[in-house]
């Protein structure tokens, strides 16, 4: 593995760590960059019990089969991307081992394991007005009756495609966005959050 200090997160140049506060106080919206996560694009046949079993064997995770759901197991979380596609998210630098385990387990099946860890930046959005900020740019129904913790969806936020993952009741969201769009989305979120008061926190 290459030296970690050589790496730059997608939003490193915005100096977010320097702006980060320990306590967001009264801010209605809290933003952070959450860099470094391992991300693997996993393809395989959801109808094939052999595939599902092999994945579970390899990384300790039962893949979510229902659209818009997620599942966690082992050290990883899988987000549903399509009927035969998942994003497997690992802790920082966990993608290598996970990908290797998956490739080994799936080598005789029609499946694909692709390391896409640097494809998407992750922006953390929380605070009591987090949902309002998303509603400004996202046409999904995010009402708690419809979209709660553990739900995920691919949609657009403003003019960027985003993989949205609600992580708790607060609500808190992780926004996975393609790296080249990350700065645009961050600036958009800052602008949309201005109405409610914004704090930046460390997301490392």
């Amino acid at each position: 593995m290459a030296e970690a200090y050589l790496r730059l997160s997608a939003l490193a140049h915005l100096g977010l760590e320097a702006r980060a506060v320990a306590d967001p106080g009264e801010a209605g919206v809290v933003l952070s960059e959450r860099p470094g996560r391992g991300q693997i694009d996993l393809r395989g046949e959801a109808e094939d019990a052999g595939f599902l079993g092999a994945v579970e064997q390899a990384i300790g995770l039962a893949l979510p089969l229902e659209a818009g759901t997620t599942a966690s197991g082992g050290a990883a979380t899988a987000l549903w991307l399509g009927p035969n596609e998942w994003l497997v998210v690992t802790p920082p630098d966990g993608q290598g081992a996970a990908a290797e385990a998956l490739r080994a387990a799936l080598k005789d099946l029609w499946a694909a394991v692709t390391d896409v860890s640097d494809s998407r930046a992750v922006i953390g959005l929380s605070g009591r007005h987090a949902r309002d900020v998303l509603m400004k740019g996202c046409s999904l129904d995010l009402h708690p009756r419809v979209f709660g913790p553990g739900r995920s969806a691919q949609s657009a936020v403003a003019r960027a495609l985003v993989l949205l993952h609600q992580t708790d009741e607060a609500p808190s969201y992780d926004l996975y966005v393609h790296r080249s769009f990350a700065e645009y989305l961050w600036l958009w979120l800052e602008d949309a959050a201005a109405e409610y008061g914004l704090a930046v926190v460390s997301g490392g």
């Binding site: 659209a67 818009g68 399509g82 009927p83 046409s139 999904l140 969806a153 691919q154 949609s155 657009a156």
Partner: peptide, 10 residues
């Protein structure tokens, strides 16, 4: 058929 109802723009 998978994700449910979404806006035409998607």
């Amino acid at each position: 058929p998978w994700c449910g109802p979404r806006d035409e723009t998607e």
